[in-house]
Amino acid sequence: MIRPARRATAVLVVAAALLLTSCGSGGGDESPSDKIKGAGSGNGSAPASPTGSASPSGTGRPEIKLSKEFEANFENWTNSDPKLQAILNDGREQLRAKYAAVIEANPDSEAVAFYSSEATLATARKWIKQFVDDGDSIIGEVRVFDAQVKINDTGSGALFYCVDERRASTKNRETAKVVKTPDKPESVLQYRTRLDKTSEGVWQTTSVTVVPGGCS
């Protein structure tokens, strides 16, 4: 289990211990295998999605901006099925919202709340607050890839994806000290998420499990 941020040398993976056990409603509907059985994994030929302020279209969706010092590159984040693409879009924005909240030192980010259900919001805010309490922001680059998405028989969305954090670092706001993420397999995380569609048409993340090294 990864230690808390104050005692670890990793960057984002240090807080993953908060999510090692599935949080949220239902605990997810998928088996713990690395692949979602029968899932579509995108078209495979699309370029990485934009990382700056691009957000999915739709009424009320917040604009999420990342700093020039940090990039989140979403590779092949596309699917020919519009319903599955909608899940990919909102799942992407939920992750981007959390990164932006760390950079802004804002655990109460409205964007995080917008894309997170009540069941997962408390854990997301706790994850962000670890960085804020340590006085750290994040810089560098994360690569988000191998997205697998489907809609379950219950109507919930299942979205698995990998996040490579080995080119990311923390940067202390006061001292400017940079701590790099270790170049180790456990710095590549697998996110196993469940999303449910709200009455407003937003796919909110309702369950998250993060597995360090789960994509190796």
Rank of each mutant, 00 (worst) to 15 (best):
P50C: 06
P185W: 14
F70N: 02
T205W: 08
P62E: 09
G28P: 05
Q190C: 11
D136H: 06
A97K: 00
A10P: 01
L88E: 07
Y191N: 06
T21W: 04
S199M: 13
D133Y: 07
S156D: 13
V132G: 01
V112Q: 00
S156R: 12
I151A: 05
A39N: 08
A168C: 11
N79M: 08
G140W: 12
V178W: 04
D136K: 05
L95K: 01
G52D: 09
I64D: 00
P50K: 06
C162F: 13
S137H: 05
I128Y: 03
Q85G: 04
A8C: 11
K83Y: 06
T193H: 12
G58C: 03
R6T: 12
I64A: 00
W203C: 02
S33C: 05
A97E: 00
D29H: 04
S55N: 06
F114Q: 00
R166C: 04
K180I: 11
T78Q: 09
A176G: 10
A17F: 15
S31N: 12
S49W: 14
L19G: 04
D196I: 09
E174K: 12
Q94C: 09
G155D: 10
Q94W: 15
L189N: 05
E165W: 02
G24H: 14
T170V: 09
V149C: 01
E30L: 02
A86E: 10
N79V: 15
S117H: 00
K197Y: 10
P212D: 07
P62R: 03
E93R: 03
A86F: 08
F131E: 00
R96M: 13
W77C: 06
R7W: 14
S33D: 13
F160M: 02
A16M: 08
V11S: 07
K83W: 05
I36P: 02
A8E: 10
N172R: 05
E104H: 08
F70R: 00
E93D: 14
L66K: 02
N106H: 04
P32T: 14
T198F: 13
T9N: 09
S169M: 11
R96F: 05
T206D: 12
D183I: 10
T170D: 08
E93I: 07
W77Q: 04
P182L: 12
S55V: 09
P56D: 13
S57G: 13
P185Y: 12
G38S: 09
A176S: 14
N73C: 07
K184V: 15
G26S: 06
T209A: 02
E104M: 06
T198M: 07
Q130Y: 11
D146Q: 13
A8W: 11
D136G: 01
I139V: 15
A105N: 11
A111L: 00
D81I: 02
A113T: 13
V178I: 12
R194M: 12
Y115C: 01
L95G: 03
K98A: 11
E104S: 14
Q190M: 13
A46M: 08
I2E: 07
S109N: 01
L19S: 08
V144W: 01
I103K: 02
V188K: 09
D29Y: 10
A86S: 14
E174H: 04
V102K: 01
